[in-house]
Amino acid sequence: MPEGSASLQLAVGDRVVYPNQGVCRVSAIDVKEVAGQKLTFVTMRREEDGAVVMVPEGKVLAIGVRKVASAE
């Protein structure tokens, strides 16, 4: 991610809310080559049905992904 860009610090195992998809758990953060460029992807699995969603790390905030609020 370019320096100075806002990002959401995620780790494998974090629970997040993905708008219009529901609650997901981060299952992987991997670098993949797409069209000759190396990009970091956040892979999330929906808790409702296990569907897998992959989002480029740089788009996580723009999409509206946020961490699940704690009970505290």
Score class of each variant (00 low, 15 high):
1 M>E: 12
2 P>E: 12
2 P>R: 07
3 E>A: 13
3 E>K: 07
3 E>Y: 06
3 E>H: 12
3 E>N: 12
4 G>M: 10
4 G>W: 05
4 G>D: 10
5 S>R: 03
5 S>Q: 13
5 S>C: 04
6 A>R: 07
6 A>E: 12
6 A>Q: 14
6 A>C: 04
7 S>T: 12
7 S>L: 11
7 S>W: 08
8 L>D: 09
9 Q>H: 11
9 Q>W: 09
9 Q>L: 09
9 Q>T: 10
10 L>C: 00
11 A>I: 10
11 A>D: 05
11 A>C: 04
11 A>Q: 13
11 A>G: 06
11 A>K: 13
12 V>N: 01
12 V>W: 06
13 G>V: 02
13 G>E: 01
13 G>S: 01
13 G>L: 04
13 G>C: 00
14 D>R: 00
14 D>T: 02
15 R>Q: 06
16 V>R: 00
17 V>S: 07
18 Y>H: 12
19 P>I: 05
19 P>F: 06
19 P>D: 07
20 N>F: 08
20 N>A: 08
21 Q>P: 01
21 Q>I: 15
21 Q>T: 07
21 Q>F: 15
22 G>F: 03
22 G>R: 03
23 V>G: 02
23 V>N: 05
24 C>F: 15
25 R>K: 09
25 R>H: 06
26 V>G: 01
26 V>R: 00
26 V>M: 00
27 S>F: 13
27 S>R: 04
28 A>T: 05
28 A>F: 06
28 A>L: 06
28 A>E: 07
28 A>I: 04
29 I>H: 01
29 I>F: 07
29 I>V: 06
30 D>C: 08
32 K>C: 03
33 E>G: 04
33 E>P: 03
33 E>W: 12
33 E>S: 08
34 V>T: 06
35 A>K: 12
35 A>L: 11
35 A>M: 10
35 A>R: 10
36 G>H: 04
36 G>W: 02
37 Q>Y: 08
37 Q>A: 09
39 L>F: 11
39 L>W: 06
39 L>Y: 09
40 T>H: 05
40 T>L: 08
42 V>L: 08
42 V>H: 00
43 T>Q: 05
44 M>E: 00
44 M>P: 00
45 R>S: 08
45 R>Q: 13
46 R>W: 03
46 R>C: 12
46 R>Q: 02
47 E>Q: 04
47 E>Y: 04
47 E>W: 03
49 D>P: 02
49 D>M: 03
49 D>L: 03
50 G>S: 04
50 G>R: 02
51 A>R: 12
52 V>M: 11
52 V>D: 05
52 V>P: 04
53 V>H: 05
54 M>C: 03
54 M>E: 12
54 M>K: 07
54 M>G: 02
55 V>I: 13
55 V>C: 03
55 V>L: 15
55 V>H: 04
56 P>V: 05
56 P>S: 07
56 P>K: 04
56 P>R: 04
56 P>Y: 06
56 P>F: 07
57 E>R: 05
57 E>I: 14
58 G>D: 15
58 G>E: 15
58 G>H: 15
59 K>G: 06
59 K>H: 14
59 K>S: 13
60 V>L: 15
60 V>F: 14
61 L>T: 09
61 L>H: 12
61 L>Q: 10
61 L>P: 05
61 L>V: 11
63 I>S: 13
63 I>D: 15
63 I>L: 15
64 G>D: 05
64 G>F: 07
65 V>S: 03
65 V>Q: 03
66 R>Y: 15
67 K>W: 10
68 V>H: 07
68 V>F: 07
68 V>S: 05
68 V>T: 07
68 V>K: 05
69 A>Q: 13
70 S>A: 12
70 S>M: 11
70 S>H: 11
71 A>M: 10
71 A>D: 13
71 A>C: 15
71 A>H: 14
72 E>C: 15
72 E>T: 12
